[in-house]
């Protein structure tokens, strides 16, 4: 564990807290893409199938946290504050993302096993999971400040992971090509958002 990775994980945690706070305080999930949240839940569930495999207490607790909160957010959006969610704004076709990521995971993976292919799938899917949210934002044109904070925290989390990989490459010879390529694409998508955001 290094500084970049820990800070990245904490930013990731913070993004989720910001999102939960926004929904609870405003009692509304307007401006939030259910499809993006659904994709994140799929990402966490398919990636953390190795939950029984012990790495560290930190690792296990974080995995449980991510799975639990992502499903809880789906519950808030689909059940508790259902009336505040406007599906007509959330029109991105996620079937294509899911299909393309699954296909890529079946072809490009480290080993062709159930757990490993789903892990790879989750890496590819996380890279593009924000697209419905960005699409929704570009359609409505305006984002609440809190939604922007949410996206900022998520973007910072991704940027810090890039620095973490550079750090790990030099300090422990760590290399993970699948994660790096997907991560670079994911960070580029956020950079695009920041660019649009600051231009406005």
């Amino acid at each position: 564990m290094n500084f970049f990775r820990l800070t990245a994980d904490l930013m990731h945690l913070m993004s989720i807290f910001v999102l939960l706070l926004k929904i609870q305080k405003t009692r509304s999930c307007s401006g939030i893409s259910f499809k993006t949240q659904l994709l994140y839940a799929v990402v966490f569930v398919t990636r953390y199938l190795d939950l029984p495999k012990w790495i560290s207490l930190y690792n296990t607790l974080m995995k449980i946290f991510f799975i639990a909160t992502s499903i809880y957010i789906l519950y808030l959006m689909k059940v508790k504050f259902r009336a505040t969610y406007d599906p007509s704004q959330d029109t991105f076709r996620i079937e294509f993302l899911l299909g393309a990521c699954l296909l890529l995971a079946l072809v490009f993976n480290y080993s062709f096993s159930f757990i490993e292919v789903l892990w790879t799938f989750s890496i590819y899917l996380e890279a593009v999971a924000i697209l419905p949210q960005l699409f929704m934002l570009s359609r409505t044109g305006e984002a609440e400040t809190i939604t922007t904070h949410y996206l900022f925290a998520l973007g910072a989390y991704r940027g810090l992971y890039l620095l973490n990989w550079i750090w790990r490459f030099y300090t422990e010879n760590y290399a993970d090509l699948i994660v790096w390529i997907a991560g670079a694409i994911q960070t580029a998508l956020y950079s695009d958002f920041f660019y649009i955001y600051y231009k406005k």
């Binding site: 994980d9 974080m62 490993e116």
Partner: peptide
């Protein structure tokens, strides 16, 4: 080694 340490990140 079936699974190397590569999946130690979140």
């Amino acid at each position: 080694e079936e699974t190397p340490a590569k999946h130690d990140e979140l």
